[in-house]
Each structure stands twice: as structure tokens, then as C-alpha cells.
Simulated assay, not measured.
Amino acid sequence: MDFIKLATQYKEELLTNVVAFWLNKSQDLEYGGYFSCLDRKGNVYDTDKFVWLQARQVWLFSMLYNRVAQKSEWLECARQGGEFLKKYGHDGNGNWYFSLTREGKPLIQPYNIFSYTFAAMAFAQLGLATGNDEYTDLALKTYDQILERQENPKGRYNKSVAGTRKLKNFALPMIMCNLNFEMEHLLDKDFIDESAGKLIDEVMNVFYRPEVGLIVENVNYDGSFSNTFDGRLLNPGHAIEAMWFVMDLAERLNRKDIIDKAQSITLQTLKHGWDQEFGGIYYFMDVKNHPPQQLEWDMKLWWVHLETLISLLKGYRLTGAKENLEWFKMVHEYTWSHFKDSMYPEWFGYLNRRGEVTHFLKGGKWKGCFHVPRGLFQCWQILERISLGE
């Protein structure tokens, strides 16, 4: 496998296609922030602004400025989005809304903890890029809010009836693995190391169920398996994405045992989630092979495949597992042939089981400036390190 050629492919796609698309098509130069609802050609079809997608774009352009090149247009793109978020994204008490009008008026209450996690990521990177302590302080205050809400992420917006079936969800500990890594320049090293150990334990020993060899999306609050729709739910993309977060933390802690386990779980999940008939990775599955309750369970989504490419490459770099390269080739070919738009910039997000595009949008309520550019960036960086023998 030609790692240098592959690295160039991912780098060029990122910098000449995807980054340019979001830089030129998404910025709201009148009110600030970004349009995420963009059609195939990049035309705006809806002006609502979703806080977690706004924050993801601030993070992305700040990260590129910090790690790739100090381009003034990247920094200005991140800064103006950060200013919009700082002014309109929260209620003044650090509670981040879910969505806003174009002008910045709140539409949906701050029920979603991921508005907070991505705001923290965004302002941590923007503070690093600008040296502005106001951004750094906002990142730390938001991080403290997340820690306070960990036990009940939705707070008073939780729809569950108390005392009946209390479940713990995988998404927050998963994203905290990455958030701690992103914010390590702002947090105490001992705290990071202790927190990393706890998060790894929760992901690898609570949500990973050895009885099925897979990571489930929900467990009972005592950590036991819940034989319910929610308890049997597998999201292959989530599980595989979490494994590269875990590998990053384990590399920091010099825990080869954890790296090896994460590498193994990546392959177990991929083999289980791969569609043997049409190719691609299923969106949702039931770990006991019962019918999933999600009607979209057999769709193929962009982010699932990009996160899988990252995990496979990271696992190969850290363990040398040849099977990862075999799977990488297969997932790479499927991803580039199905999600990349050969006519217009940026990538499609949604395919049916047969691999046919169902939505020709480039951005919407759930897809924004994040998984495609981050995936391309990560793969480019890892492939370069592999080519250099690092």
C-alpha cells in the first residue's frame, strides 16, 4: 500500500475541496456564524443555525489554523463564528441552546449536552489560536457545566419517568474521551490522567459487553446489560469512533493493553456491522439480531465510514495489525466511491442500503463542517506518520 500517495489524496481533498467549500459557502457575513443547510451545489436552503454544528465549525477552522497553517482566512472564519456563538449561543448563564434563528434568537431550549461539549472544544481551540483569554475562560466554564450535568445530561428536559428504567448512555463518556484530549492544554495533567483512566474503564468495561463482543449504546445504571430495545442497541459508527478516542488516551497513558483491546473491538464491530450483500456499514443494529426499532437502521452514513477509516489507520499504526490494512482498503474504496460527489465539492451524507444517495444535501441539521474534514485531516496525518515509520 502506497501510504504517501494515500496521504496526498486525503490532504488534497481536505484542503482544495472540502475546506474551501465551507469557507466560501457557509459563512453568514451579515449576521455572523454559519449556514449548515446547504444543497448539493452549496446554496443555502434553510437559515436556522444549530449550536453544535456552529461550534464544530469554529473548532474545525481553529484546529486547522493551529495544526496545519496559520492562514488568516481560516482564523477569521473561526473567530467570527465564535463571536456569534459567544453572543447568542447561550442564555447568559452558560446554558447552550440547541438551535437559533439566523439572527441568533433561541429556537430550542438547552436540552442537548452536545451543544456544550462542542462549544467547549470550539473555544478551547479558538483560545489557543487567538490567545484570547475570554475564549479560554468560556471553554473552561462550559467544561465545568458538562461535569455538573454528567449524571443527568438532559437535566429538566429529560423525558424519562424517574424510578422505572434508569439507563446510562454511551454518547457522553465517548465524547468526553475526545474532549479531554482536545482540552488537555487547559486542564491539569493529573486530572487528565485520572479522568482518562475512568473514561477508558467506562467505555471498555461497562459499555463493552463481552457476552456479545460489542459496545452497546445504553446500559442499566448499575452497569448491567439491559435486555430492551435501548439496551440491545448497537451503533457501529459510534463504537468504532470511540475506539480511536480511546487509542489516543491509551497512547498518552502508555497502555498497550488498552490499545490492543480497542484495536480488537474496532475489527469485531466492523465485521459485525458490514453489509455482506451491498457493502458499507449499517447505521444501527440489535446485538441479539432482533429487528431494530430505528426504521433507518440499514442506511449507510458518511460519518460512520470516515470514523472507521481513522480507527483502522490508528490501530494499524499503533499495533501493526495487517488485517486493519485489508479492511481499510475495503472501507476506503466504498467511502470514496459512494460519498464523494464527483461533480460538486463536499461529500454526500446519506445512502440507502444499496448505496444510492438519498439526500443530495451537503449540510443540514445533523451534517455540517466536521466529520468529512476531520476524517480527511486525521487520515492524512496518520498516513504520513505511517509512511515515516512513526
Rank of each mutant, 00 (worst) to 15 (best):
V19R: 02
F181H: 14
R354P: 01
E346G: 09
L100N: 11
G355Q: 11
F114W: 10
N112F: 13
T164Q: 14
E73M: 00
G280A: 04
K141F: 03
Q57W: 06
L126M: 05
A120M: 09
Y31H: 15
P291M: 01
A171T: 06
G280N: 06
N152S: 11
N324S: 12
K256L: 12
W52E: 02
K141G: 08
N66I: 06
Y111V: 03
E202H: 06
K256A: 12
K362M: 10
D248F: 01
N324E: 10
E333T: 15
G364C: 06
V357M: 04
L313W: 12
R165C: 08
K49A: 01
F278E: 09
E12R: 09
H90G: 04
G89S: 09
E83N: 12
G127H: 11
N227G: 00
G131A: 12
P292L: 05
T16M: 00
D298E: 14
S195H: 02
S226T: 06
F245H: 09
R374F: 03
L313E: 11
V51T: 14
I113C: 08
V216F: 09
F245R: 04
S26A: 14
K71C: 01
I258D: 12
K11Q: 15
D201Y: 13
E241G: 04
D341N: 11
K340P: 10
N132D: 15
F114G: 13
G355L: 10
S72A: 13
F50D: 00
M183H: 08
F348N: 06
G81L: 07
M243S: 04
Y283N: 06
W366H: 10
N66D: 10
E390I: 14
V219E: 08
F84K: 11
Q268T: 04
I310H: 05
I386Y: 02
L53V: 05
V161C: 04
Y143D: 02
V206Y: 03
K87T: 15
A171Q: 08
W336G: 01
N254P: 00
T164F: 14
K271H: 06
W96E: 13
D48I: 08
Q145G: 13
E134D: 14
F50T: 12
G127M: 13
K166H: 09
S337C: 10
A120D: 04
W336R: 08
Q125H: 14
G368L: 09
P173G: 07
L75S: 07
A124P: 02
G389M: 07
S337D: 15
R102T: 03
G364R: 05
L253V: 01
Q263I: 00
L64Y: 02
Q268W: 04
E184L: 13
